[in-house]
Amino acid sequence: MAIIKASAEAIAANSSSETEKLASVKKHKPKNTIIGVGNGLTEKIMHIVFLICSSVAIIALLLITIYMISSGAPIISKVGLKDFIFGDKWAPTKEIFGISPMILTSVFGTIAAILIGVPIGLMTSVFLAEIAPKSVVKVVQPAVELLAGIPSVIYGLLGAMIIKPLSYKIEMLVFKDNPEHIYTGGANMFSAVIVLAIMILPTIINISRTAIIAVPEEYREASYGLGATHIQTIFKVILPAAKSGIATAVVLGVGRAIGEAMAIILVAGNMANMPEAFNSVKFLTTGVVQEFAYSSGVHREALFGIGLVLFVFIMIINIVLNLILKGKAKAK
């Protein structure tokens, strides 16, 4: 307070007009003193607004969890957890609800898509971040970002137009000596995996590229300084240094692949078969989408059961992602 007083005195001594101003201000309200600064009420109101906004997300998650469990659990207890999850026959009309073909399709479909998509995506991100000249990056980078924004059903249409016929040709080639094979016309696991692999590319590319760019320049210098080549530097220093970012990319890719329905419903064939490359298959997601409209009673309950299983999968993926990110924070 002494300082404020002293400075006020200094100003007063400085010019008389300013003294008047100061006096008039003081008459109204001491706006220029510490006490008046930052209205407490506005602060409180804003705090509440922020709290409410953030609550919306939490409440939504809570409701989804409660709703999924309450609507998915009855069928699971009716059929029995073991029979529901491990049962290999899905025949809603006969009230047989075994979803293991769908679970396995979703799991293996995702794994296969990751096995194809991650190497391609990672190589692309290395190319964009390390090798490509700026002019190329300027074209490819926005293209990749655009790819991420394309609605998934468009990927499905593309798959139906291009990949399905291609897959049918391969199918005919592979099974030409096998009269017992039931032809899928290209609507099969293979096509679905290819579409999924393409769909996860933008996620993999963008996140890994960011991680690679974030690798400090000093590591590159050190590696070159020791006589390592560019390629050695990429594989032995840069990618290991970016590994947690790449792991994040993979997990997000898994999340995207396992949750995808619209793209693959057009190419998967939608029969609850065990996942083999040239079987028509049904994913957890596509099963729900396809059957929901005409289902009723126990059948509809079973679809909620599928939803619950999928929900649990996504939860697990998110927990894994969080663990990775935590590990990353610790490493720093």
């Binding site: 590696s223 300084g225 006589g227 290991p240």
Partner: peptide, 20 residues
Amino acid sequence: VTYLRKKIGMVFQKPNPFPM
């Protein structure tokens, strides 16, 4: 150049060990 840099090593301003 690889062989050259093997013959002429370098230590930088900021210590830059690899994260390994």
